[in-house]
Simulated assay, not measured.
Amino acid sequence: MMQHVVMFRRLEHVAEDMHREAALVERMRNLEGEIDFIRAWRVSANELARPICWDYLLEASFDDAEAVERYLPHPAHQALIADLKTYFEWVACDYTR
Rank of each mutant, 00 (worst) to 15 (best):
A67W: 01
R70A: 14
E16A: 13
D83Q: 15
E34M: 11
W90M: 14
E26M: 08
R42E: 02
L84K: 07
E16S: 13
A49V: 01
N30H: 13
D64H: 01
V43G: 04
A49S: 10
M2W: 08
S61V: 08
L11N: 06
W90F: 15
R97D: 14
G33T: 05
D55W: 00
A22E: 13
L24M: 05
A67H: 06
M1L: 09
A23T: 14
C53M: 07
L31S: 07
I38G: 03
A45R: 14
A76E: 03
D63G: 11
Q3P: 04
V25S: 15
R42I: 02
Q78N: 09
S44I: 05
E47M: 12
V68C: 09
D83A: 13
D36T: 13
A82K: 15
Y56S: 06
V5N: 10
W90Q: 15
H19R: 13
Q3W: 09
R27A: 02
F8Y: 06
M18K: 10
A82Y: 06
R29M: 05
R27Q: 03
A15L: 13
L48F: 10
T86K: 15
Y56Q: 10
E26V: 02
D63V: 02
M18H: 09
E59P: 05
L24S: 07
H4I: 01
A67E: 05
R42L: 04
L58S: 05
A67S: 09
Y95P: 01
A23F: 05
H74M: 04
Q3D: 09
F8C: 01
A82C: 08
K85R: 15
E59M: 09
L31N: 03
D36K: 11
A15F: 09
R70I: 04
D36M: 08
M2A: 08
A76N: 03
E21P: 06
D83M: 10
G33P: 12
V91H: 02
Y87T: 04
W54M: 11
A65Y: 07
P51M: 03
E32C: 11
S44Y: 07
R10Q: 09
A79G: 03
D64C: 00
F37A: 01
L48S: 13
T86G: 11
D64F: 00
M7Q: 11
R27C: 01
D63W: 00
H4P: 02
L48E: 12
A76V: 02
P73Y: 09
A45M: 03
E34W: 05
S61A: 13
Q3V: 10
A79D: 04
T96S: 12
F37N: 07
F37R: 03
A92Y: 05
A49I: 00
E89R: 10
I81R: 06
K85P: 03
W54N: 10
G33C: 08
H13T: 14
D55I: 01
A82R: 14
H13F: 14
A23I: 11
